[in-house]
Simulated assay, not measured.
Amino acid sequence: MVGEDNQPVNEVLEIQALDDALKPLSQRVSVTRETGEFLLSLPPAAARLDHVLIQVTAPRAGGLFPQREFSVDPRPGVTAPLVLENAGAAVVVSGRVVDRAGQPVADAGVYLQGKVRGGGQFHSLTVRTRADGRFELQSLPSLPDTPLTLYAIPPSGAVSGITRQATLVPPGGLSSQEVVCPNKVIVQGALLRPEGGPAAGVKVVADPVGAVPGWPRPAQGAEVSSATDEDGVYSLRLDPGEYRFDFMPGENLPRVSRFVPVLAAETMQVEPFTLSKGRRVTGRVTLSDPQRQIPSRVAPYADIQFFRVVNVAGKPTAIRLAQTVADSAGDYTATLPTR
């Protein structure tokens, strides 16, 4: 691993072999800093492929070393030197994040990412805006004809939503960049009771579970909740993303969920959803140790949860159906959906 001057790169580097789907074929190993040498151990099947991807990262470079991939034929066992082109010197990008009314957005996360010189993928460190909405971060220059993408992510409680902005970063840096955040998407829908008619007073929780194309995934754990009105209508303000909507009636109706992709727009209407009828499940929680021949005994106040496993984007995902707590005698009752 060498630089453009054919000398070892003066940086702590790590490499890993990947397949075309970017799945790891090896452990991540360090490059010898003094010589640029590295040694990867591949499984026999991977060593017979006509090519693998060698991913190079610099974990201690503070975000100023772009990630690179090289296509390498692993069959000879020894590769020609991999040349890391110079991506340019770090520059300063500064600006201000505001809402649609021109007011500053405080505590927003701001970062730049995209392709830079040498074919690497750059992702700057994330900085937070100050009370006046201003930020300053270090970046690498963009390619002359390929801007980087600047992302501004307001805090979860803000009315303003995530924004992205194409940004050409010249070798001299960039100042006074103004970033305007749109409002979050207003997502509205209606819930119906199993026998028909509006379902009023139902708690609705939107939990982000993934990203939609072109947008970063909403922050993990940034749940947004609302309740249906007398007409069964709910309204949520959300960033673009993939969400799990949990509908939690307060009566003898079960909790149900559905997955909803939210795309960038002013407003979005979700199709009406009919709640499920419930079936009551009762039982008792006991503790036992057959090996020690200890008699069974009740487990008071045990937490009990019921889940259903469904496929989401090809991956098995557990959806909680109900949660309850056993009483002092270990007895519990839960309401589960009939479908």
Rank of each mutant, 00 (worst) to 15 (best):
P76G: 10
Y332I: 02
T324N: 08
A190V: 09
L143Y: 06
P147F: 01
T167C: 07
V105H: 01
R68I: 01
D331T: 10
A131D: 15
V105D: 00
I319F: 13
T317Y: 13
C181W: 02
T163Q: 03
V83Q: 07
T126L: 09
P198F: 07
L82P: 04
E223G: 01
G330S: 04
L25K: 05
T126N: 05
R193I: 02
L191E: 02
E11N: 10
V298I: 14
R117M: 10
R75L: 09
P261R: 01
D331Q: 14
D99P: 09
L22K: 07
E14C: 11
A87V: 04
R284V: 11
D289K: 09
P43T: 11
T333Y: 09
E85C: 07
Q305T: 12
A334C: 08
A329Y: 12
R237Q: 14
G77E: 06
V185T: 12
A108C: 11
G120C: 10
A90E: 09
V116L: 08
S30T: 13
M268L: 14
R280T: 15
R164K: 15
P272R: 08
D50R: 13
R68S: 04
E195D: 15
Q220W: 03
I15E: 00
G114P: 00
G210L: 06
D331N: 14
Y234R: 10
L174G: 04
A80C: 06
A152Y: 00
C181P: 03
P182T: 06
V202I: 10
Q291E: 14
R308A: 14
S124D: 06
I304M: 05
Y301A: 09
S160W: 07
N311H: 07
V270S: 10
D207Q: 12
L25H: 05
Q165N: 07
T32C: 06
D231M: 12
P81I: 11
V180C: 08
R255Q: 15
A326P: 03
A87R: 09
I54A: 01
P316D: 10
P74E: 05
T228Q: 07
E136H: 05
V281S: 06
D207N: 11
E242V: 15
A199E: 02
V159I: 13
Q177D: 08
P74Y: 05
A90Y: 03
P316G: 03
G3R: 03
F307T: 13
G36Q: 10
R308P: 04
P216V: 08
M1C: 10
Y332D: 01
S226G: 07
P144D: 08
V233T: 13
S124A: 07
P170R: 12
S41D: 11
E266Y: 11
A322T: 12
E37N: 13
L140P: 00
S94V: 11
F38Y: 13
Q113L: 15
P66E: 06
A101V: 07
Q138I: 04
P182S: 09
